[in-house]
């Protein structure tokens, strides 16, 4: 196997502890994009109208592109010779670090739109900050992905408005989605020990600040969509530290099937 080489001069100067933290965090970002990109790709060929089938595939492709850059960087940070595919295809559910929200099943179009909207707002705000991250590679990846995330957020925000302020049925469905998915939104902003350490070291923004901006955007979109922002909902946590819902195992069984059935081959 080819030994991963590092092109990031800054990364070579990191202490082993910092390197490990950045590895863990990069992996978390990669897992998140992969799982959401995978979920969206399940829609391909099954969308409500051809034009939206193309739109969802575009978002999925953006996320998969981001995933690959992040895994490649994670592999370099780790320096153990693992590849992007080793990281994606040969880790167990408990090793995955994505938040619970993105692994939730597609459900109906309202579920998918709301999941996307809740995530896009966070993704957009995070990447906006990460563009100035003192880690050059993360900053470069964020700069590219930020443009994509800006479009995703526009797309999902408009759909939330259409469904909320559309027909009675669409309103009922998006409210049901809200009931199902809102409880996973808090985890996005709940800092794990890894994130806290990196925040202290000056690599990550203050998530509380992101949360405030996120709340404002959600309130604005929901007002236009004639939807109520849920209050006092108990937030489910755990994905970012490996405590997943049962959905992830099945997703990975499908995703990893060939690599598991035929170990060590090139495809």
């Amino acid at each position: 196997m080819e030994l991963a080489h590092t092109t990031n001069t800054a990364a070579q100067n990191y202490s082993p502890e910092l390197r490990e933290l950045l590895f863990q965090y990069t992996l978390q970002l990669a897992d998140t994009s992969l799982i959401l990109g995978h979920r969206l790709s399940e829609w391909c060929g099954h969308g409500p109208i051809l034009e939206q089938d193309l739109a969802m595939a575009n978002i999925s492709l953006d996320l998969l592109g981001e995933t690959r850059s992040l895994y490649q960087y994670a592999a370099e940070l780790e320096g153990q010779g693992r590849t992007e595919d080793d990281l994606a295809y040969l880790r167990e559910a408990v090793e995955y670090r994505n938040p619970l929200l993105v692994e939730q099943p597609n459900g109906d179009f309202a579920d998918t739109i709301l999941r996307q909207f809740l995530f896009d707002g966070f993704h957009y705000l995070l990447l906006k900050k990460l563009q100035n991250c003192s880690d050059q590679r993360l900053a470069a990846i964020a700069t590219k992905s930020f443009k994509e995330a800006s479009y995703h957020l526009k797309w999902s925000s408009e759909w939330v408005i259409r469904l909320g302020d559309g027909t009675e049925e669409s309103k009922r469905r998006i409210e049901k989605a809200l009931d199902r998915l809102w409880r996973y939104s808090g985890e996005l902003f709940q800092m794990t020990p890894v994130e806290q350490e990196l925040h202290k070291a000056g690599f990550l923004p203050d998530y509380a600040q992101l949360k405030q901006q996120w709340d404002e955007h959600v309130a604005k979109v929901f007002a236009e969509a004639t939807l109520e922002v849920p209050q006092n909902v108990f937030m489910q946590l755990g994905g970012k530290t490996g405590m997943h819902t049962e959905h992830l195992g099945y997703l990975l069984a499908e995703l990893q099937y060939l690599q598991r059935a035929y170990p060590g081959l090139e495809w």
Partner: peptide
């Protein structure tokens, strides 16, 4: 119209 522009971008 908004959706038409976005769809045009995606298509």
């Amino acid at each position: 119209a908004e959706m038409a522009i976005q769809n045009a971008r995606d298509v």
